[in-house]
C-alpha cells in the first residue's frame, strides 16, 4: 500500500465500487459454479463431492459430443459468412455518399431487435404449412417446400442463418467505423497507382482495419461458445439434437434434468475454452501482433 501514489490510490478508489459489484455478482458466483462441477448437486438437496465423475460422464455423453461439434460448426460459420458479407457491405457502403446513415440503420436494425422478435419472424417464414414452403409448393418448387428448422439435416444451419442475419449488421457498422479511420491519402495514392477496387481493399483497407477485424474474429469465437437464445427459441436443440449446442445442453441439464453439478461441469469446460482462446490472443499480442 505504501508504494501506491496518491494518484494510483484515487484510481483504485474509483474502481472499488465496480470491483466490489463485480466480485459479488460475477466472480463469487462463477467460482461457486466452478466448485459445483465436482459435486452431484441437484439444485435443492445435499451436495456430495464426486471428484471428476461429472467430467468423465460428460466425455462419454453422446449429446454433449454432438453439441461440441455443432458449436465448432457454428463458430466456423460465423467466422466466415457474416464476416465476408459484412466486409463487403462495409467496403461498398464507404463509397456511398448519399443516404449512408439510412443504409447503416437498415443493416443494423435486426441487431437491435429482441431475439424473440427475430425468431418469430423467421419461424413464420420457415413454417412448412403457412410460410415460404407453402409458396414454393404452390409454384411447383417441391424441393424447396420444406421447413429448414424442422428438418434435422438443415436445422443447425437454419438457426445459424437467423442468428447471422441479426448479427452481421453489427459487423457492418464496426467495419465501417474502422474504415472511416483509414487515412484518405492512402486511397488517393492507390488511385494514382491505378489500383483496382479489389487491390485497394486488399492492400489499403484491410491492412488498415486489421485490429478491428481481429477483434471481431476474437469476439465471434468467444460469443459462439454461449450461443443459446436463437437455438432455444427456434428449435430447442431439435429435431433429434440436430441443432443442439453446448449452452442449450447446459441449460437443459441444470433446469430440466436438475443435474446442477453436471451442468456446472459443462460451464467449467466452456470457461476453460474461452480462457484458452483469450490466452492465445494475448500471446499473439505479446508477440507483437496488432490485436
Amino acid at each position: 500500500m505504501k508504494n501506491l501514489s496518491n494518484k494510483e490510490m484515487t484510481s483504485w478508489l474509483f474502481l472499488a465500487p465496480v470491483l466490489f459489484i463485480h466480485l459479488l455478482v460475477v466472480a463469487i458466483p462463477s467460482l461457486s459454479s466452478l466448485a459445483l462441477c465436482f459435486t452431484d448437486w441437484n439444485g435443492f438437496g445435499k451436495i456430495n463431492f464426486v471428484g471428476f465423475e461429472n467430467f468423465l460422464e460428460l466425455f462419454d455423453d453422446r449429446v454433449f459430443k454432438k453439441a461440441i461439434i455443432h458449436n465448432l460448426i457454428w463458430t466456423v460459420l460465423f467466422l466466415t459468412v457474416p464476416i465476408a458479407l459484412a466486409l463487403l457491405a462495409a467496403f461498398l457502403l464507404t463509397g456511398v455518399k448519399r443516404f449512408q446513415m439510412f443504409y447503416r440503420f437498415v443493416f443494423f436494425f435486426p441487431y437491435i431487435l429482441a431475439s424473440i422478435v427475430n425468431c418469430l419472424i423467421w419461424k413464420y417464414l420457415f413454417h412448412p404449412i403457412h410460410g415460404l414452403a407453402a409458396f414454393f409448393k404452390d409454384i411447383g418448387w417441391e424441393s424447396l417446400a420444406t421447413s429448414p428448422l424442422t428438418t434435422k439435416e438443415t436445422s443447425l444451419y437454419a438457426v445459424a442463418f437467423v442468428d447471422g442475419w441479426h448479427f452481421w449488421g453489427f459487423l457492418v457498422v464496426i467495419y465501417i467505423t474502422a474504415m472511416y479511420q483509414v487515412d484518405e491519402s492512402l486511397y488517393e495514392a492507390a488511385d494514382i497507382e491505378g489500383a483496382s477496387k479489389w487491390q485497394t481493399f486488399r492492400f489499403v483497407t484491410f491492412p488498415s482495419i486489421r485490429p478491428m477485424f481481429l477483434f471481431s474474429f476474437l469476439i465471434i469465437i468467444i460469443w459462439s461458445v454461449p450461443a443459446f437464445d436463437y437455438v432455444y427459441i427456434l428449435t430447442s436443440g431439435g429435431p433429434a439434437y440436430s441443432s443442439e449446442v453446448v449452452a442449450n445442453f447446459m441449460y437443459f441439464e441444470a433446469f430440466r434434468n436438475m443435474n446442477v453439478g453436471y451442468a456446472s461441469a459443462v460451464g467449467a469446460l466452456m470457461f476453460v475454452y474461452v480462457f484458452t482462446i483469450l490466452g492465445f490472443f494475448w500471446t499473439l499480442r505479446k508477440l507483437g501482433w496488432e490485436i
Binding site: I129, S147, L149, G238
Partner: peptide, 15 residues
C-alpha cells in the same frame, strides 16, 4: 399429427 413429422415439429398451440 398435422400431416408429417416436419409439420408436427413446426405446429404450435395456435396452429
Amino acid at each position: 399429427w398435422s400431416g408429417s413429422l416436419e409439420n408436427y415439429y413446426a405446429v404450435g398451440w395456435d396452429d
